[in-house]
């Protein structure tokens, strides 16, 4: 750990953290919760979901806490009326795309999107639903991807690349059309790089990638992040 530290204020609380720490980590290490979806400890953050946006005093724009490093004297606000509104809107945008029908979803009650929506008080979406049918790939022996439920957080892609080291998964297309694919858009069963390690299912925050027939509580057990972290640091 670097010896140099930086002092800053988060929600008016004075904190001191090692140089180079992200705002998210600085906040969490000091007991301040910032909602996140695409970020997962142990994986490289890429700032995709925009749920962790925070205000920095004196700056005209918002910053994603998961990718912005702290700097000395920074004054961060993690919870303002405006931020709460933005976060709600972000969740609504996610919900308006694809099919999020909790009642018949494998991840019901164990879904990060669902619990964030609950926590942030999202009870409806102001956006028109923008739904197109996506194909489900259940060709693999036990891994299933239901692209209708995918929120494109890319955790699966990053875990496959950074931890398992095979990079079977990636994205094709852009924006609303984007989809997680295997190899060069093969059916999963035909992927020659997939090692069937199940990590993608373990890190999926929703019910998009899951293990057929396995209780979701077993797939998504809490220590995933810890496991990834220890593997990463070669402990």
């Amino acid at each position: 750990m670097s010896a140099l530290t930086v002092k800053l204020k988060i929600d008016n609380i004075e904190v001191e953290v090692p140089e180079g720490t992200t705002i998210l980590k600085a906040a969490r290490d000091n007991g301040i919760e910032i909602p996140t979806l695409c970020s997962l400890e142990g994986l490289t953050n890429y700032g995709g979901c925009r749920l962790c946006l925070v205000e920095v005093k004196g700056a005209p724009k918002l910053f994603p806490a998961c990718t912005t490093p702290v700097s000395a004297g920074m004054e961060v606000i993690t919870n303002s009326e405006q931020l709460r509104e933005y976060r709600k809107m972000t969740i609504q945008l996610l919900l308006s795309e694809r099919t999020h029908v909790c009642s018949v979803c494998v991840a019901n009650d164990h879904c990060e999107l669902q619990s964030l929506a609950n926590k942030l008080g999202v009870d409806h979406s102001i956006f028109e639903r923008n739904w197109t049918r996506k194909e489900i790939d259940s060709s693999h022996d036990f891994l299933v991807i239901d692209r209708n439920r995918c929120i494109l957080c890319t955790r699966c892609i990053r875990v496959c690349d950074e931890i398992e080291g095979v990079h079977t998964l990636d994205l094709k297309q852009r924006g609303r059309k984007a989809e997680v694919i295997m190899d060069l858009d093969e059916d999963w069963v035909n992927s020659c790089s997939c090692t069937s390690c199940r990590k993608c299912a373990k890190v999926c925050p929703v019910g998009a990638i899951y293990i057929e027939g396995e209780p979701i509580t077993r797939t998504k057990n809490k220590d995933v992040a810890e496991f990834i972290l220890t593997r990463r640091q070669r402990k």
Binding site: V104, I136, V144, E212
Partner: peptide, 11 residues
């Protein structure tokens, strides 16, 4: 249509 068959009881 298009859903995995084992979801049918739930649906």
């Amino acid at each position: 249509e298009g859903r995995p068959f084992y979801e049918m009881p739930g649906i």
